[in-house]
Design a protein around this nucleic acid. Structure first.
Lengths: 182, 182
DNA sequence: GTCATCATGTAAACCGTTACATGATTGT
DNA sequence: ACAATCATGTAACGGTTTACATGATGAC
């Protein structure tokens, strides 16, 4: 069942926007897709080599000063379209915060509050990042724009939900703490 | 950096609620923690063997009819508390839906709508499941009750956010489709 | 009697990160 | 000159799933 690694989507997709070195690709994935995707060098370089061998990407500028810039080929575009059309493979959920909270009785309300508080701060940082990204994306005029905004909006909805839940959880935990104290 | 596997938390935590066989443990994790955690047999059995060797769990009822029921020991409880106190290790994000949507221009609005629609259905199913779980948990009187409700609430917030975003995304994608049609 | 479920375990494969090695280029 | 960054790769490790093998028990 040759499960096409989703890494190929990220790599080909990135190169479909503009040619890049492997290093730049990783930076782009970290900075632009960072809130819903990640790749490490250990994935990117072998994948690039693999894609090159299959003719889906090629190195351009033979006399490169530093590194080699990879560009997607027409066959690569077609391959990307095929990969995108494959059903989203659901990754089994693993939320370390909720796992700890579920067994929170062993941890105590105060320690739980600390965990939730940290998560709340993260959600707020995320919202600020999204605001910056949104402003940047809205300012440009590309065929990708509306799709990119869709992913920003997903992040915003999710972060606001996390924020609302965290506030609720903090007050519940405070109550639990007060009851234990009396 | 002996990264304590979070599987131990799930296993010890499960046994802290009641003694169980490995099989029952897996079922419990699937059914009860299913919306934020998962474990496979390949993890559970070796972990149980390992925990037994360290004296954190023991097999009870020597003359068992089927399988052996594992119970957590006092040392196991202490170990669980230590594990719970360890910082939540953030897993790198990997959202296959958003990855596809980001490169949605290559996929087209109609195919994107199908993906979002599938996700919307999932969110609605999830909300129904949460309603059932909530009713069940609210009906009981355990020291764990409020912690469990916290995790249910997290699921509800997240599912409602997904729902709201999906509706928004569907109308955006419909507009994109109409513009392409004219 | 036979089918579904309960139960235990293992081996192989996969996916992915981390850490390391190496060196060129640029800025100061 | 030196540090920071750009750049490419690989090896080792670790966690996790999947598939398989095996068999007991209970329901019908």
């Amino acid at each position: 069942m040759a499960r096409a690694s989703q890494t190929e989507i990220a790599v080909l997709g990135g190169l479909s926007i503009q040619p890049m070195t492997g290093y730049a690709l990783r930076e782009a994935i970290r900075e632009v897709l960072g809130h819903f995707w990640s790749e490490s060098y250990g994935q990117i370089y072998p994948t690039l080599a693999n894609l090159e061998q299959q003719g889906f990407v090629r190195r351009q500028d033979a006399a490169q000063a530093r590194g080699s810039t990879f560009a997607i080929t027409p066959a690569g575009i077609r391959h990307l379209e095929e990969l995108l059309a494959q059903p989203v493979q659901a990754t089994p959920p693993r939320n370390g915060l909720l796992l700890r909270l579920y067994f929170g009785r062993h941890l105590g309300p105060a320690a739980c509050r600390t965990l939730v508080q940290a998560m709340l701060t993260e959600a707020q940082d995320a919202l600020e990042r999204y605001a910056r990204i949104r402003a940047e994306v809205e300012g440009q005029d590309s065929g990708d724009r509306d799709y990119w905004l869709l992913t920003v909006s997903a992040g915003e909805h999710s972060a606001r939900a996390a924020q609302a839940w965290a506030h609720e959880a903090l007050s519940t935990l405070t109550e639990l703490d007060d009851m234990a104290g009396t």
